[in-house]
Design a protein around this nucleic acid. Structure first.
Lengths: 121, 121
DNA sequence: CGACTGATTCGACAAGCGTCGATGTACTGG
DNA sequence: CCAGTACATCGACGCTTGTCGAATCAGTCG
């Protein structure tokens, strides 16, 4: 699989409590974050993403999730988009390719949307 | 202002702990949620949204935030998109129009992305 | 090797989207 | 009533994106 995806974060960047209510995004951050949201901005992609996240063991092969009403090349196209946005990782095992969600990037998006930031208290 | 926006939620729908890791989205839910993500999928819109959320008192008039590198009509266009997605509300007060974020809808998106759902153990 | 299945890539096309300048609407103040 | 400011709408343009069928790549099993 491609090894030139969007490396949104350092491997072990600490999740930050994000700006939305505290400070406005920089132009660069806006570009980065917008790309992530864009990945989930299509119903078919969102369903694929959901199917993978909800699948047992947190992973699914393409054949498990390709029943979303579009052709198989289109499914592949959308999975590629999700991969490029950093939301999914794919791994080939024998005949099948298994996808799983990248929790760090998803957490990043969730954190940005956490309007009342402070979780405890 | 328009009173025919996307009514994404019942007025007092209880925020639910969402599917992503528990169950896959229905086709209809996917369409609804994708529309919200789409609203934030453009860097300019994300910056506008950020500027409003970060502004004092949680509201801002267009003149406060329109310095994002695009023309004034384009700013207006993006604000409309955000309104139609339910993420912003706009209110005219005299000469100016003030926008504020709609916390419920944003919380909905954040909840969907909360992979480990269970917040307090 | 050769046939078969799973998955990605390619090329093409229509629809959607972001952008602009020009124009229109809402409100204020002289 | 008229000039000026704030914001929205309109119409047009080019680029992006979702979709497909066809072709290609990867891996398995006779």
């Amino acid at each position: 699989m491609s090894n030139l995806e969007l490396s949104v974060l350092e491997p072990d960047a600490t999740p930050f409590c994000p700006p939305l209510t505290s400070a406005e995004l920089s132009e660069q951050d806006a570009v980065t974050m917008a790309a992530m949201f864009k990945a989930l901005s299509d119903p078919v992609r969102l369903r694929l993403f959901s199917k993978i996240a909800a699948h047992e063991d947190g992973e699914a092969c393409v054949c498990d999730i390709q029943d979303v009403g579009v052709s198989q090349p289109t499914v592949s196209h959308h999975l590629k988009k999700l991969r490029e946005a950093g939301l999914l990782t794919g791994e080939r095992r024998g005949t099948w390719v298994y996808y799983r969600v990248e929790p760090r990037v998803v957490a990043e998006m969730a954190a940005l949307l956490d309007l009342n930031c402070r979780a405890g208290t």
